[in-house]
């Protein structure tokens, strides 16, 4: 079924701490279809960051199988993971993680630099992406000349510029005040309506409310899953 974007089966992540070993994830299984809007919630230490890293191809599971877009991430080497991150995933971080000395435009271009896109095409795509998040007039500003909300929107433009299969956001409103947070969340809503698949990792129930489906983690396992609400 081509409609399934993420397919995780019995995923384990174990950290070996010398004498003892810690199971950050203990047998997580779930699927996500295209154009879902999922929130992964749970208290700190529940394993949600580990899960996010696995979904985002930053790490591979100790045990279990993970298919992203039909490709087995669990068997990829470093280069293939980097490629998957570049093509399939758009990251949005809590702390924005923009390159401080580069303009918004350059920051947004960066993923395309790594995919080897020619310069002129790159500039065009980055401009488009910045316009899509409403920052067409801030293209040549550096991060320190932008507000927090604007910075996060630059980060979102950077995540979208490669047209990824999945937008993966880690506490995207955590460093923003309520007003700006709301602004970012309504941008996510709009992106979802436009057909993007979004996974949001948060511990904030108000943020999770925006998602159509909420997956709760506790102690490395899925405690509850509201299911494919959008597909009902």
């Amino acid at each position: 079924m081509n409609d399934i974007l993420l397919d995780l089966k019995d995923i384990w992540k174990t950290y070996d701490l010398g004498a003892t070993s810690v199971h950050a994830l203990g047998g997580v299984s779930f699927e996500a279809r295209r154009n879902e809007y999922i929130a992964i919630v749970g208290p700190s230490g529940s394993g949600k960051s580990t899960l996010m890293n696995l979904i985002g191809c930053l790490d591979t599971p100790t045990k279990g199988r993970y298919l992203l877009n039909g490709r087995p991430v669990s068997e990829m080497d470093d280069n293939e993971l980097a490629r998957a991150r570049n093509e399939e995933i758009g990251f949005v971080f809590q702390t924005f993680n923009l390159l401080a000395r580069q303009t918004a435009q350059r920051n947004v271009e960066l993923p395309l630099v790594y995919s080897g896109m020619p310069r002129s095409e790159r500039v065009e795509r980055a401009t488009e992406a910045l316009e899509a998040v409403g920052l067409g007039d801030r293209r040549h500003h550096r991060p320190n000349e932008l507000s927090g909300g604007q910075r996060q929107r630059v980060a979102i433009a950077r995540a979208l510029v490669t047209r990824p299969s999945l937008l993966l956001a880690d506490e995207p409103t955590g460093n923003l005040d309520t007003e700006m947070g709301r602004e970012i969340l309504s941008l996510f809503d709009r992106l979802h309506e436009q057909g993007n698949t979004i996974i949001l990792v948060t511990h904030n129930p108000d943020v999770a409310k925006h998602a159509r489906r909420v997956v709760s983690l506790l102690d490395g396992r899925i405690e509850s899953d509201t299911g494919n609400g959008a597909r009902r």
């Binding site: 985002g56 930053l58 280069n79 980097a82 093509e87 390159l99």
Partner: peptide, 15 residues
Amino acid sequence: REIGVRKAIGARQKD
């Protein structure tokens, strides 16, 4: 951190 960001958005080791 910059290296982390670059890697997260698709930089390979050799890049």
